[in-house]
Computed example of a mutant assay.
Amino acid sequence: MTESLTVAFIVLLINLITFCAFWWDKDAARKGQWRVPESRLLWLALIGGSPGAVLAQRLLRHKTRKEPFRTQLMLICATHAVALAVWFSAPLWAPIALAALSFAH
């Protein structure tokens, strides 16, 4: 398996786990049982499960109005979007930045 495929598999797995954690929490809320802590749901989103968290939030209609959870999840998603934009645009700006750094020395 190539490195890219391995990373894609890990990200997919994290998102599946995140979605399942939201489902579990929603089911527990309905049954009045032990709930998954919000901090754990946000942590799962932070480590790469934000697409799974948002998908679960929308499909399961879970934690859609809960504040500050909703805002914190959207901040995590925004951070991930910026990080991906920087990552994918790196081939465009990285050579210029490296040249500028070497010129400064």
Rank of each mutant, 00 (worst) to 15 (best):
T2W: 01
T2I: 04
E3K: 11
E3Y: 10
E3G: 11
L5G: 15
L5P: 03
T6Q: 14
V7I: 15
V11R: 07
L12F: 13
L12W: 03
L12Q: 02
I14W: 03
N15M: 08
N15I: 10
N15H: 11
L16Q: 07
I17C: 11
I17M: 05
I17F: 12
F19L: 06
F19W: 14
F19I: 03
C20M: 15
W23K: 13
D25Y: 07
K26N: 01
K26Q: 11
D27K: 14
D27S: 12
A28R: 13
A29Y: 00
K31G: 02
Q33K: 13
V36P: 12
P37T: 12
P37A: 13
R40C: 09
R40Y: 09
L42Q: 07
L46W: 14
L46R: 10
I47E: 03
I47N: 03
I47H: 01
G49Y: 03
G49T: 03
G49A: 08
P51L: 11
G52D: 10
A53D: 00
V54H: 09
V54Q: 12
L55G: 08
L55P: 07
A56I: 09
A56D: 00
R58Y: 07
L59A: 10
L59Q: 12
L60M: 09
R61V: 06
H62V: 00
K63N: 11
K63Y: 06
E67L: 14
E67P: 07
P68Q: 08
F69S: 03
R70A: 14
R70N: 14
T71Q: 13
Q72K: 14
Q72D: 04
L75C: 10
H80L: 10
V82E: 05
A83I: 07
L84K: 04
L84S: 10
A85R: 05
F88Y: 15
F88Q: 14
A90E: 01
A90Y: 02
A90N: 01
L92S: 12
W93P: 07
W93T: 06
A94C: 02
I96P: 00
A97H: 03
L98K: 12
A100T: 05
S102G: 00
A104E: 13
H105G: 13
H105I: 12
H105D: 12
